[in-house]
Design a protein around this nucleic acid. Structure first.
Length: 239
DNA sequence: GCGACAG
DNA sequence: ATCTTGTCGC
């Protein structure tokens, strides 16, 4: 289970061809070790999108305390095209992952994984190139349909596409909009749902996502999480 | 041709 | 994603 490597396409046509090859490598079953560190990944933009800012926040599990983080800024090289998000955001994310001293046991992305037209959304793509188990927990839907989800926390309905279960619309907190959970890589859907629930003790979005988001947009950790350990060398800068 | 469309 | 304050509702 080594990390897979590839070049970064410039065109959508090229990117689509790559996704068609990547999809065969996605592992939909549980192939993860005991989770001690869960990493949240998020990306923001500066200068009208010309600069990509990637942040990774590593939390202890199950305590959810921030242990380490890294922020990287890079020139944006690929446009936003629905279905090709990984090509736009992952180069910077991988750079941030490299700066960590800790090796996360699981990655949580604020994007789709398997719930994608070709079954290789950003979360799956990242799992493959990082060589780590991953899951997708998106705020909104890319594709698929689902029945109404009961309003209680923990309730979910399968997200369907062409008769296949590609993910789940999960109520992470009572009364809030569902979060779209899908497998990324080396994790089963039930396991992915389980982790997302354990990562949402208080808010709609996973603590991992919230921690990474705070770093990617404000450049500093959430007050409630301030790191106990060391941070990645050189916080809000990057190559 | 007409919508839909992660971040 | 980003531009941005207050405001409606539980």
């Amino acid at each position: 289970m080594r990390a897979l490597t590839h070049r970064w396409p410039t065109s959508v046509t090229q990117a689509r061809a790559l996704q068609e090859r990547l999809r065969e490598r996605v592992v939909c079953t549980d192939r993860l070790r005991r989770v001690r560190y869960v990493a949240g990944v998020d990306v923001g933009f500066e200068a009208e999108g010309e600069i990509t800012r990637a942040a990774v926040a590593v939390l202890g599990f199950p305590d959810l305390r921030l242990r380490e983080y890294a922020i990287v800024r890079r020139r944006t090289r690929f446009p936003y095209v629905p279905g090709y998000l990984g090509f736009r955001e992952l180069p910077a994310v991988l750079e941030a992952l490299k700066r960590l001293q800790l090796r996360p046991d699981l990655l949580v992305c604020d994007a789709q994984g398997y719930a994608h037209p070709r079954r290789v959304g950003l979360a799956s793509h990242l799992g493959l190139v990082a060589g780590l188990p991953s899951i997708g927990a998106a705020k909104s839907r890319l594709i698929g349909t689902h029945a109404p989800v009961p309003r209680r926390r923990g309730c979910w309905r399968p997200l369907l596409d062409a008769g296949e279960i590609i993910g789940a619309a999960l109520r992470t907190r009572t009364g809030v909009k569902p979060v779209y959970v899908s497998i990324g890589h080396r994790v089963s859907l039930p396991t992915a749902i389980g982790y997302v629930l354990r990562l949402t003790p208080r808010y709609r979005l996973p603590e991992t996502t919230r921690a990474a988001h705070a770093l990617a947009s404000h450049g500093e950790p959430l007050r409630t999480n301030s790191a106990t350990g060391r941070h990645a060398a050189g916080s809000p800068s990057g190559a």
